[in-house]
Design a protein around this nucleic acid. Structure first.
Length: 287
DNA sequence: AACCAGGGTGATG
DNA sequence: CATCACCATGGT
């Protein structure tokens, strides 16, 4: 057992592990969580001001980094609350949302699958992807996330059991370019986000939104701000006129808070609000 | 039976 | 540069 000293307002397990940034975690009947990242399996649970990790010392550093344990999110929230009342409300409702430090290739595949898809099915496809092409994780029923090399030479027919639909060819294309040239993930990690936006969008199936997700969740470029349909609705309805740059170096965390808030308040986006908000080109500033 | 789901692509004005 | 059908699949 590895204890992490992270009180609930520094790490909210459900809000972080089941909020659409990672897709391999499930809450257990007893309230604990189980899941995998990369080639590691983990069970964890909250106990008071600590989170207890069921793993050996050898994996402790990996998971500390994964949960971004070196960062004080309380201070980040304090800064974000100053920026807008809606952020203050969301931060008060959902303290402990963190930006996980996932591996770039895993994040890339995850958000390739995410396009025009829903979260339960994304989880299903990624689970089958790991089971089919990943190595078993010893002493567990889980499988490691497949390395891109595992896809070289595969065909869309080989990926048919995933039932990923037209997205299967995106996985194959990404593996090919990551392994054999065409896109530089190492440079993307080293250089500013602007480089990565261009670089990642060379990949088939990667547009602005997927690139932004991969940069934020896979490369921890914290100023990135993915704009999906929910975020567009939320911005128009709740923060009209604001743009991602307004949120600064932790825009990604602001995005996560707004996303969480809007998914938990669907009534804010009734049919009337939708048509009044999204389609308006003035950003909601008009009278 | 249509419509939607953390969009992207390619073809048209 | 804005819009639009289409893309596979599964759930309402």
């Amino acid at each position: 057992m590895i204890p992490l000293e992270l009180p609930p307002d520094e790490l909210n397990l459900s809000a972080t592990l089941d909020c659409g940034q990672a897709f391999r975690w499930t809450e257990q009947p007893d309230g604990s969580w189980a899941g995998a990242a990369g080639n590691r399996y983990l069970r964890l649970r909250r106990e008071g001001t600590r989170v207890l990790l069921s793993c050996g010392e050898g994996d402790a550093a990996y998971w500390r980094n994964y949960f971004d344990a070196g960062e004080a999110y309380r201070e980040k929230l304090t800064r974000l609350k100053e920026l807008h009342p809606v952020l203050a409300e969301a931060a008060a409702l959902y303290p402990g949302v963190r930006i996980l430090r996932q591996e770039p290739w895993e994040a890339l595949c995850s958000f390739l699958i995410s396009q025009n898809n829903n979260i339960p099915r994304i989880k299903g496809i990624l689970g089958r992807f790991c089971r089919l092409f990943g190595e078993p994780i010893p002493e567990t029923d889980e499988y490691a996330f497949p390395r891109p090399e595992a896809l070289l030479g595969k065909t869309v027919e080989d990926l048919a059991p995933l039932r990923a639909g037209y997205r299967a060819k995106y996985l194959l294309g990404a593996a090919e370019m990551v392994c054999c040239g065409g896109v530089e993930l190492a440079e993307t990690a080293r250089l500013p986000a602007a480089y990565g936006r261009d670089e990642l969008q060379k990949l088939p199936g990667v547009g602005p939104k997927v690139a932004e997700c991969v940069l934020l969740y896979g490369f921890h470029k914290t100023e990135c701000f993915p704009m999906d349909v929910w975020m567009k609705r939320a911005m128009a309805a709740l923060l009209p006129g604001r743009v991602p740059a307004d949120f600064g170096e932790d825009a990604g965390l602001a995005q996560q808070l707004i996303f969480h808030y809007s998914r938990n308040h669907p009534e804010l986006f009734s049919e009337k609000a939708k048509s009044a908000g999204v389609s308006r080109s003035d950003g909601g500033k008009a009278r």
